[in-house]
């Protein structure tokens, strides 16, 4: 029988922490503060939507295979959808980053939100890089031969071999997307847990407490 003096299991600690920091009302709120009524707040979710498209079209490409996406009209189209989703993903992410930078959105214990965002940015660049390496054309050959010198010069060429097609393909379709997915999930959960940061000059009661 458990008594209050007994040590708590990690499951119990996790549940209590979760209930305290991210109750379902915070996870799925009905309303947002008045200051969120601006286009600039849509760029996070636009980035998220682009990421969804990237993953969906990427899965489609993987299931059909290279001879399909390099050799058929529909394959070319889905390949292009994948590519252009990435272009928009980065454009939206950069505008999102600028927006959060100029509103100093790391205020009020939101440092981890900023850090996970920065990690998502760097991780996305790595993922896009491996994507360019697996086009199996002269472009990817050129990029990998330029990049291998860079990787060798910083001493990580033997682990991260950019001319190894198999390694780059697996990193691109398996490892890196999972990492990006996990970082993004933590990022968005943190935003929900902390609530949207009030504007820098928001002393107004109506806008909530200044945190």
């Amino acid at each position: 029988m458990s008594t209050s003096t007994e040590k708590e299991m990690w499951v119990t600690k996790l549940r209590k922490g979760w209930q305290k920091n991210l109750p379902v009302e915070k996870l799925l709120p009905d309303t947002q503060p008045a200051y969120v009524a601006s286009w600039i707040y849509l760029f996070g979710v636009a980035t998220l939507a682009s990421l969804g498209l990237i993953i969906a079209t990427g899965l489609w490409l993987s299931f059909e295979g290279a001879s399909w996406y390099h050799g058929s009209n529909v394959g070319h189209f889905v390949n292009s959808l994948h590519f252009w989703s990435v272009q928009f993903f980065f454009v939206f992410m950069v505008v999102h980053l600028w927006g959060k930078f100029w509103m100093a959105a790391w205020r009020g214990r939101r440092m981890l939100t900023w850090i996970t965002g920065a990690l998502a940015f760097v991780g996305s660049i790595a993922t896009a890089f491996t994507g360019y390496l697996v086009q199996s054309n002269f472009d990817s050959q050129w990029i990998s031969y330029e990049a291998k010198d860079g990787f060798n010069s910083v001493g990580i060429g033997s682990r991260f071999t950019v001319t190894n097609f198999g390694q780059m393909l697996l990193l691109h379709v398996a490892f890196l997307p999972v990492i990006i997915g996990i970082i993004t999930l933590i990022h968005v959960l943190l935003v929900r847990a902390k609530g949207v940061v009030p504007p820098i000059d928001a002393f107004n009661k109506e806008l909530g407490e200044r945190k």
């Binding site: 601006s38 286009w39 600039i40 849509l42 760029f43 454009v91 950069v94 505008v95 600028w98 927006g99």
Partner: peptide
């Protein structure tokens, strides 16, 4: 991207 940023700030929501 700069134009998009400007529009996001100044267009009424």
């Amino acid at each position: 991207m700069l134009v998009l940023f400007g529009l996001a700030l100044f267009l009424p929501f």
